[in-house]
Design a protein around this nucleic acid. Structure first.
Lengths: 345, 345
DNA sequence: CTGTTAGCGCATTCAG
DNA sequence: CTGAATGCGCTAACAG
């Protein structure tokens, strides 16, 4: 390993003291004459500065920690793009820890990141518990949670309940009465509870005889696919997946059973994944803007790091994506032609 | 910010010197009596050790750098899961830099990571250039590239050409003669060049009258969808997308044009994304194991970091996924029933 | 504006 | 086996 060039080498070459170089690098409080010499020396030696030595002094390392439940997920990917979009230009870098959908590990990861002295942490949580609130008290590192919400913690999440209501209201308007909500465990408050609750509220309100049955499927295609028979046995006019992936798994089951969508049964999901636009029939869904969420979370964290008062009560937009997979029962039956392919944004 | 407990605090509490504590933490070359006292003190003070101070000394920070073209991609996600699976248990953490499909930025990111003193770097490249080879010479940090290959660099990539050949041979066997290869620019050697070349070689070999036309689409659904008309004008019996996403975009176009797949035209892709199994018809594809690639890359890097001789010439498996979207022209026509949903692994 | 002097927290000689 | 001493590379007072 060749010796790295240090601030000392630069000082020697520029004929100044180490501190002057340091000042040049930071405050910039240096005579223009010496500044020039230093600048030249820095370039000539290709000096880069030692991250670790710097951190040891300043307690400010331009490093943030990211705790994510998994990496192979569309929403996490978008979130990361958003976070990166605001941190990268500011010279921050991220350490990423994966908690594998495990709450215990999530807590350990937060702790570990704090101990390393990152400037702040963003946690894309799978479920906020009392332990999270406790940890929050114990550590001083700025902390922002996304995806879930809990009083006392700085959180940024989609309004899942509103999304549920939006979907419920739409399907009610379309004349549906018997719905099956294919979802996940209520341990996941946002996806498992709020979306469902919002949906049920809006769908059954002022909709006499309306029923919503619940079937738990898990998060992936296969889990949903495997519950296809159970769902169909409930004889719904519409099946709502708590996520687009769930809806896609159901769609596959219906295809195999030769049950026509939306003619015989309607299907809808949540998430607004792009792939929902290419399948046939294209999936009606509620889109969230995970990239925006990432950007906002990053800004929030940045404000906290710099001790600025941050506008925490911020709201995230949701979009309704009306596509092909839902039939309007109030209109005379007319088989739809596939619509033009549409994407988000 | 509360003061962090340091090795000094531990030493005081345990009534020993700082160096003894340090030794206990590392070599462990300490009398069992004092070790006991230190152990107790460490626990009592919840001592964690300062990452940065440690790094400043040891030049070994348990940190690796990851340079990725983007985050919102299935293959990158899988790759990360694989990398994480081997580094996490070893106590390594990762700094992730996103190069946004930009070769220039990719180089800068590598350099930046090296300057920070990470122990090693994995680069999921979008295209290896002479500049990469040059950089490789200039820096001492162990470097592993994935996704692309170039002599003189340690690389780990799928055998894209073999995948292309596998697909070409299969479609030839199925009696196809007129193919359109919907792909990307040859700047991307792996996807743009090798897959195509392998395909053309195998498809046209010993297949009199066979033709392959090329249409450039870009990487996403929409780009492929938009080239649908151009592709169809070539009157192919089979359309091969250089990636599953391209194939999916084409599939959507065909649906909208009411062209039946595979009865009127066959479609196939590369990648083996799970979503290919849920669309209808399920997409015939060649699957790569990105997670395994990540694990192997990580092991390779680990070996390099520890100066072990690493088996670089390792090969990655590819799997043929025969699903519904390709028609065997050599068999009597019989409309297929949808097959049971199948996933990878 | 600038050089000198101290450490940040830790690992590592080097004498005991 | 152990403690004292040294310095990693850098910033932050401190006097000029």
């Amino acid at each position: 390993m060749e010796r790295k060039t240090t601030i000392k080498d630069v000082a020697q070459l520029a004929q100044v003291s180490k501190s002057t170089v340091s000042r040049y690098l930071n405050d910039g409080y240096v005579s223009s004459e010496k500044a020039e010499r230093i600048k030249k020396a820095v370039k000539e030696l290709d000096f880069k500065g030692n991250f670790f030595a710097k951190r040891l002094k300043t307690k400010h390392c331009q490093l943030i920690g990211l705790v994510l439940p998994r990496m192979d997920s569309v929403s996490v990917g978008k979130l990361l793009m958003g976070i990166n979009a605001v941190f990268e230009p500011k010279g921050y870098q991220a350490i990423i820890l994966v908690s594998q959908l495990n709450g215990e590990k999530e807590l350990n990861n937060i702790l570990s990141l704090h101990q390393q002295g990152v400037d702040g942490i963003i946690v894309n949580s799978v479920g906020l518990t009392a332990a999270h609130a406790r940890l929050r008290q114990e550590i001083s590192t700025p902390l922002v949670f996304t995806g879930q919400k809990r009083p006392g913690l700085i959180c940024l999440k989609n309004d899942d309940e509103a999304a549920g209501r939006m979907m419920g209201a739409y399907l009610k308007e379309c004349g549906h009465r018997r719905a099956v909500f294919a979802g996940v465990t209520e341990t996941d408050s946002a996806v498992g509870l709020e979306r469902k609750r919002g949906f049920i509220d809006a769908f059954t309100a002022d909709n006499p005889g309306a029923t919503v049955n619940f079937v738990e499927t898990g998060f992936d295609f296969l889990g949903a696919y495997n519950k296809g028979a159970e769902i169909c046995a409930l004889n719904p006019t519409v099946i709502v997946g708590a996520t687009d992936n769930i809806a896609l798994g159901v769609l596959r089951y219906l295809h195999e059973q030769n049950i026509k969508v939306p003619d015989e049964v309607s299907v809808a999901g949540f998430g607004g994944y792009e792939v929902g636009a290419v399948v046939y029939p294209a999936l009606t869904s509620i889109a969230f803007d995970y990239e925006l969420m990432g950007m906002k979370a990053a800004h929030l964290l940045l404000d906290m790091i710099h001790d600025q008062n941050s506008l925490t009560g911020d709201t995230l937009p949701i979009f309704f994506l009306e596509r092909e997979s839902v039939l309007d029962l109030t209109k005379p039956f007319a088989p739809k032609q596939p619509e033009k392919f549409t994407t988000l944004t």
